[in-house]
Every structure is written in structure tokens, then in C-alpha cells.
Design a protein around this nucleic acid. Sequence first.
RNA 1: GCUGUUGUAGCUCAGUGGUAGAGCACGUCCUUGGUAAGGACGAGGUCGAGGGUUCAAAUCCCUCCAACAGCUCCA
Length: 670
Amino acid sequence: MSEPCTPPILRQNARPIPMSTERKTLDQRAQMSDIERLRHSCAHIMATAILRLWPDAQFAYGPPIENGFYYDFQMQHRITPDDFEKIEAEMKKISKENQKFEWKGISREEAKAMAESGRLGGLSERPGNPSIFKLDLIDKIPEGEQISCFQNGDFIDLCAGPHVGYSGKCKHVKLTSVSASFYMGDETKASLQRVYGTAFESKEELEAHFVRLEEAKKRDHRKLGKELKLFHIDEDVGQGLILWTPNGAILRQELQNFISEELRKQGYSQVFTPHIGKLALYKTSGHFPYYKDSQFAAIVENDDLAKVIHEGCGCGEVMARLGGISAKLRQQLNDRAGKEVVSEENVLPDDQLLDGFMLKPMNCPHHIKIFDSQPRSYRELPVRLAEFGTVYRWEQSGELNGLTRVRGFTQDDAHLFCTEDQVAAEVLGCLSLVKIVLNTLGMTDYRVRVGLRDPDSSKFTGNPEQWDKAEDACRAAAATLGVPFTEEPGEAAFYGPKIDFVIKDVIGREWQLGTVQVDYVLPVRFDLSYIGSDNKSHRPVMIHRAHLGSMERLCGVLIEHFAGHFPTWLAPEQVRILTISEKVDAFADEIFAQLKAAGLRVTLNQDADKIGAKIRNAQLDKVPYMLVLGEKEAAAGGVSVRHAKRGDLGVRSIAEFLAEVTAEVRERKM
RNA sequence: GCUGUUGUAGCUCAGUGGUAGAGCACGUCCUUGGUAAGGACGAGGUCGAGGGUUCAAAUCCCUCCAACAGCUCCA
């Protein structure tokens, strides 16, 4: 969702390169750290244990990963977590046996023979059960490279290593989960079972790892979202559709106000556009029908629907007629793009085409139409159109996750239309804005990824000079940020280079939030122009940018970042007044009115609970300020201040407290 | 979408074929207190939905829905 609206064409070319081509060299493998070596050996020990229990298992890949290891395999029995205990017990035995890990260099012929007999990746020869994955892996080893295997006990595996010396080292291991995976990560290949485990050098480290996981769970935004009543997802409304409850709405609104203020300072114009648009619009932009699978189904116009029903068309037919485009549009698009971007198969005769509406999957076509709604002069540029624009995308159900991966979300989106000479300055402006926002939110653990084109590839459109200029601009802009950045050739969108902000959250997961993308293609597809100082028509350049991805994802990441303890300016409830007894009710009412008048989000707890219970509840609700009011305070006309994280701050005058807190909110202090 | 796990009160969960449970939250009452839980009583459930097995199903079986973990994906 953080890619605001990369237009389509050539999706197949944009697919990630399959894992298999990123083969590590033997030298690279030898550089494994000690802990990776240990975990790699654990994977072999786990395979050994699984073979002892289920001798038919066929193993594929078993690498160390961050925090642990896994092994992929295929066999009759389906592993469930109930089997872990059994496997772990067997692994413990193998560790006690203190098997030596022995390296053996073998010839290609030997390797193949061992795989054919089922010996490779097995405890013994397994007639009639050749090691199919190992055979495939052997074929993938380049000619001339040393083929090697490792043996521990009876288990011989095709493996470049390295390993620990003896299995006795692998004592502190725990299996963590089981899942399905695909051979070589390829959806079309065999489905395998994958068992994950983790291992450490000492028992203490292993335990600490699980404590860390527990801590992370406590900050999970889905858990906190429920506890603090920030949002709700309802089965009857639909998966991945967020209902913002009052507390969450405050959080979101405060963020939005903050971003709006910054946008105004930077010369953006805010716009509003509807949630749907005609199919024809997305056909021009090229998003439909090429991204049909990740969009909500089109909404057919009533008249058209009546007509096709009259003709007796089935749903499939209706969808096909919606998905087609006219020969004329195809011609136009191909001409504008200067190459074949729309194939003939989607062309239908005009009288068979249906029109309809789409829930917008991105905001750019709408913004483009605003730009194009009047003639533009170079004097107006850059035109910066910003919108908190809600878009809808059909994410696969297994990919949905709380607020961070949803089907309807609001981007802090903007599109800049500028001259080619202005690109560098505008990119820089976008980045500095992101930086201001992230710094204010105290999110400093982030890195920047500059996606450049792969010069050898033909998948990128546009001329090389434009590209060089845009890439230089992006690179230079990233360098001024003072945060680590990487250049990733081949990672550009096909229509222009991009800069992504990747935030690391408390659990160490990385989230792509902001993105800035230079685009030379959509201006062509929509035939945009402006009048230059030479009184001739010129093509503007577009910059797509979303600082924070989406309000949903941002809030999700922020909830975990703050563990629910928001800074006062973001806190749904900023102050809670706690009375000690009914005797001070009138005084409390008065203080409450004063704070409210000052614009603070304040509540009053006059329940019959004891003060200890009231404090406890306020702490659990993570309210930053508690004002304890009793007869002492009423007599002195002051308030006892308690801060959720700093504890009892003593008595102050109401004026003093008000001045402090309102300043804290105004300045958006952390 | 794929594999696995889970679904019982608003929340967290117990309940292995025989009359639906606990704690918290909620309501009423008593208590009027000094920095993380005062007490009593009460209300609250078609056990995710639908089908099946059984004299009998929250419990066993099937299908669907949803959540979670991982995989794949993310314009």
C-alpha cells in the first residue's frame, strides 16, 4: 500500500527474481557468523530427528535465518505442533550423541548416484525413494564448482556448510512453528512443509529470546487497539476494513492535522476527490484490467446491467465485457507510450463494451484530472495536490493484518506536477517533509532505499537522459538526509526512480511507510501539458509521494512504537481528574471546566472507587496526566499531578499545570 | 489464495458426550478513602454459522466464515 500508485503495464516484468538465481558463492557461505553456523547445524539435526521418526521425508532447503532456522521437506505425515515435543526429544538425543559434522567433497556423479539411491538427505539408502529435491539442487550447482556434503551420524546432506564441529554444541533449541512453503519460493512448484526453530548458544539467551517475544506481544497494535479502544474490525463489515472508534479517530485526526499544517507550510494545495471513478479513467491510466486481481470488482452501470440481463448474459460475460477496451483507446495508449503496452486480447468491439465504476485503488488519476482541468502555465508549476485519499485494494485474505495491511485505507497522498528542471528540488522538498514528520513522531530508526534502474534491463521506459537526471536528483536528495541509505539498482519502478522510507519497529520488523516516486509515464498516458516560457506546449513530470504510506499503517506502527503511551498531543485522553471523596466534587467540576475550556481532552472520574483503584485504571488506560483532587488540594486551590510514566509530580497551581500541558501539546513534545 | 492452529459472556480464559463456568469489565447498594485492585448483590450466552453422527453435542465428523502464525503476494 505504500506504493501510492505505480501505473501498470508489464507486470510480469516487475516480478521479483526467484530466489534460485541468487545463489551464494561458497566464499559467501563460509562467512556465516558463529550463531548462524550453530543454527544451520540445528537444521541438520532437526532433519536427522525427523528422518528417525519418518524415514520417507524428502528434504529441500535448510538454512539459518534471523533468530533461528528452518528446513523445508515433503512427506506423508503432516507435522503439527503436537509433534514438536517428539522431534525436540530426538534432537536432544542427537545432541547428546555428540555427532561429528564431517565435510566431504564429492564428484557430480557420486552426488547424483547418492541422490538417486535416496542416500543424500537420508539416514541410509532408500530404494524407490530418490532424493528429488537434492537431484534438482545438484543440477543447479554450476559446472566446475566443488560439490560438497556434510555427514553427522547417519545423516548425509548435500550442503556447502559451514557447521559446528559436533552436535553437542546444539543444546538450546526450540521448535517454534510449522507452515507451508513452496519449493524455491515458487508458487507453481511443490508445496512443502516447513518447520521453524530457534537456537542459541546458552540457555539464558534462548530464554531471553522468548521473553523478548512476549514483550513484543504486549505492544502488538491489535491487542492495544482493543484495550485502548482505538479501532474495531467487524466480521459483518468485512475483513481488512477498519472502523475507527472515538479514541482512534482522535489519534488519526491529530496526525492528520499535524501533517496538514506541514503541507501548508510547504506550499501544497489540499483537494478532495470521490471514492469511485469511471472504469474508462483506469483504462487510460492502465490500471484496469491489468490489476483486476487486486482490485474490488467493478460496479456495473444500471442501464448496462439491465441491457445485458435482457440479452441473457452470465456474470462471466458481464465481467469480460467490462474488462475489455476499445480498439481506439488501445491505439491511443500505444501511441502515447511509444510502444506496445496494451495487447490485442483485451480489445472488444465498441458495442460490446460496458462501462462502470471502480472503487479507486489509488488517487493519481483523480489528481491528474484536477491538474488537467485547466490550461497550465510554467508560472504555476509546481502544482502540488495533496489529499488524505481513501483507496481500496483487494488484498489476499491471508495477508491482512490489523492496521498494517488492510483493504481500505487512507493515504497521505500527494501528486506534484513540475518541469523537468524542478524535479530535484521537489524530491528534496518531499524528503525533508518526511524527515520532519518522522522526527516529530520520534521515529528515528529508519533507513532510506533509493531504487534505481538496472541499466542492462529493457523494462524501463523513457529516455536515458531523463533517467540519469532523475536518479541523480534522488541520490543527491537521499544523501542530504543524514540517515543511512542504500542504492538498489533494478528496484526502480519501470516509469521512474523512487525513494522509500523503511521504518524498523520495536519487534525489528521493517515497514515501508513513505515513498517518493518520479514518474514520466502517466503524464504521457493522460497527455498532460503546460505552456512554457517559449509559448510552446511541454510535458510535465509527475512526482507521487505518500509520506507515511497510510494513516492506518502509520497508526499501527505508532501504537507499537509508543506501546500505547502516546505523547500528550496524540493521546485520546490527555488528562483524567480523580477525586478522593465526594466532598471535593464541586471543586473537581470547576477544574474540569477550566481544562476543557483550555481545549484539553479531559475526563472526570467521580466514581465511588478508592483513589488507588482510580489511579490504577487511569494507568491501564495510559492517560498521560492524572490530577488527584482531595480536600488538601481544594483548600489550597491547586492540583496534585501524576504522570503515567514519571509518577507523582507533586502539587501545582492550576494555572501552572495548564500552561505546562498546553505548551507540551502545542509544541508536540514527545 | 496455500499449510497449520484457534473460535465459549464486552475482555482474558476454564470446561473430552449427560442441566453452560471463573476473573475482570458492567448495573444497583454499602463504604468517603491520599498515588496501581474496599465490600455485597445482580444482570449478562442459539458455546463463530450451517449440516451430520447420537437417546443425548460446546465437546465427535463434514462444509463454510473469521482471527492468528508462516508461505506466496503487496500497482
